[in-house]
Simulated scan of single mutants.
Amino acid sequence: MMSDDLKNVHVFPSVKEAGYAAGRAIEAKILTLQQQKSQIRMIFAAAPSQDFMLEYLTRSEKIQWHKITAFNMDEYVGLAADASQSFSQYLERNLFSKVSIHEKHTISTSGNVLDQIALFSELLESEPIDIVCLGIGENGHLAFNDPPVADFNDPDVIKLVELDLVCRQQQVNDKCFSDLDEVPLTAVTLTIPTLMRGDALFCVVVGPHKKEAVRHALRSPVSTTWPATVLRQHGNCQYFFDDEAYSDVAVIRA
């Protein structure tokens, strides 16, 4: 289903249907790019909301993964490199181990974080980013750009940030951590301008715990109070929601 007044908003009865629809749209974009470019550069979020989208993509028989270079968009500081909660491990489990990707670049925070920031900045700026697959946090964050640190004109490509309480609690709500005390206090994240420079953005947001963030993202004034509002200023961003995530917006529209 498509929203009447937001033609880039797609709403589905279930989490799986929303994820698979996003997967189909991303696949279609990749197939077009495969005809135009020898290499495609993509940035991936790592969160439960992305599960079904990634499942669809890894099952595609049409995507030429040997043409794709992948980046992750954020990573905790303070976790062991092989911790199951790390975003690089999430992408390894759900994507990289299932396809023959050309190159994968994941943020390492086990060594000198500033060195990694410099390296990742260079990698990201070497060529344009074609596709960004992202979600929206309960506090409206994009990657780990929580409201206190979000900057729509950020001069950095990637930066070290402190995570706010709502963001850290979300990681417990998502069952990534069993207790708030286990969630790291800091992380490295791509900045909002870096994400917005992607040519095509595909945003998957599901579940009742995201409905307030979705309502603000689509209806509130564009500001860092709800960072995801800035997505409305991108010329090619598609949203994929399940009914529960979209429910507050649907009430307003009624």
Rank of each mutant, 00 (worst) to 15 (best):
L31F: 03
P147Q: 07
E244I: 01
N72W: 03
L57A: 08
A118G: 05
S100Q: 15
T69P: 00
Q233L: 13
E27I: 11
T189W: 00
E92R: 14
C237R: 03
N139E: 02
I68H: 08
L231P: 11
I136W: 00
G207M: 04
K37W: 05
L134K: 00
L195S: 03
D51A: 13
T186K: 11
Q34D: 05
D164G: 09
F71K: 05
E127T: 14
A81Q: 14
L195N: 03
S220F: 10
S14N: 08
R168H: 07
I63P: 07
T109C: 14
S14Y: 05
F177I: 10
Y56C: 10
R197C: 09
L31M: 13
L54T: 01
K16I: 11
D4Y: 10
P148Y: 04
A200E: 11
Q35Y: 03
P148A: 08
L54F: 15
A81D: 07
A250V: 00
D248A: 15
E92L: 14
R168P: 06
V15G: 00
V11Q: 09
S14C: 11
E125P: 03
E212C: 02
S247Q: 15
V214P: 07
T69L: 07
C203I: 15
A25G: 12
A47G: 15
L124N: 04
L114F: 14
S49W: 00
V157A: 09
K159I: 06
R59F: 08
Y90W: 13
C237V: 14
K98Y: 05
L185A: 08
E92W: 08
F71G: 04
T32R: 13
L124E: 06
V251P: 00
L165G: 02
G19T: 12
